[in-house]
Amino acid sequence: MNSDASTPARGLFIVFEGGDGAGKSTQVRLTRQLLERNGGEVLSTREPGGTEISEKLRSLVLEHGHGTIDERTEALMYAAARAAHVQQVIAPNLRAGRHVLCDRFVDSSLAYQGVGRNLGVEKVAAINEFATDGLRPDLTILLDISAAEGRLRRLTHTGGVDDSDRLEAEPDDFHERIRHAFLELAKAAPQRYLVLDATASAEQLQDLIRERLEELL
């Protein structure tokens, strides 16, 4: 144990996962407000992204018009963006005592590339173990939603305009595989997850998140 009383306690690392349209951004915002009201310093971020190089990789891997991206290259691009994110942003802020809220993390790669792209969960986990230096969330909040409901929400949010990125544009059966992959990950480590029905109201979801965070705080 560090005897230096001036060393801040490590912040909580909380990740929000789930299919597109599940409402992750809303819950990140509300959870940040909750933690700040309780006196905490909070950083909210996203993946892929969070650093200059990670945001550039995000545009390359998600935006249309960059040519064919094969499955392995896609998985490695996500891992590279994550490595920079962890080393430059997430880990330093946790050490400084700030809570870090992240919209997606390793589980998204396990679900989308490991299962969705059929690369295998173990192989994708291995490259991400290296990329993150073994960093794991204190809590993963999984907002569970069907592919059809997620697509409807996205279209409602954009006024009916389909602005789907490369992954969002995949068919519903792909997204249903992703949904079940997330649920299997949560089932394998229930102590680290809070699984919520994303069709509930934002207020109801935030109440459940607050109850779980009170246990951690």
Results as ranks from 00 to 15, higher is better:
4 D>H: 05
4 D>L: 13
10 R>Q: 13
19 G>Q: 08
27 Q>G: 05
34 L>K: 01
35 L>N: 04
36 E>L: 09
38 N>W: 15
45 T>Q: 07
45 T>R: 06
48 P>R: 08
49 G>H: 10
54 S>P: 06
54 S>K: 02
59 S>L: 14
59 S>D: 15
61 V>Y: 04
63 E>T: 04
68 T>W: 14
71 E>F: 08
72 R>G: 03
77 M>E: 01
78 Y>K: 04
79 A>W: 12
80 A>G: 06
81 A>C: 09
89 V>E: 14
89 V>I: 14
92 P>E: 08
94 L>P: 02
102 C>V: 02
103 D>W: 01
105 F>H: 13
108 S>R: 02
112 Y>R: 08
113 Q>I: 10
117 R>F: 03
117 R>V: 01
118 N>G: 06
119 L>R: 13
119 L>E: 12
131 A>F: 11
131 A>N: 06
134 G>V: 10
140 T>P: 07
144 D>C: 01
145 I>A: 04
145 I>D: 01
146 S>G: 14
146 S>N: 03
152 L>W: 04
153 R>E: 05
157 H>C: 06
157 H>L: 13
164 S>N: 12
164 S>I: 01
172 D>V: 03
173 D>Y: 15
174 F>A: 09
175 H>V: 08
178 I>C: 08
182 F>L: 03
182 F>T: 00
184 E>F: 00
185 L>D: 01
190 P>Q: 12
196 L>K: 13
199 T>E: 10
204 Q>R: 12
205 L>V: 09
206 Q>W: 04
207 D>M: 14
207 D>L: 15
211 E>C: 06
213 L>R: 05
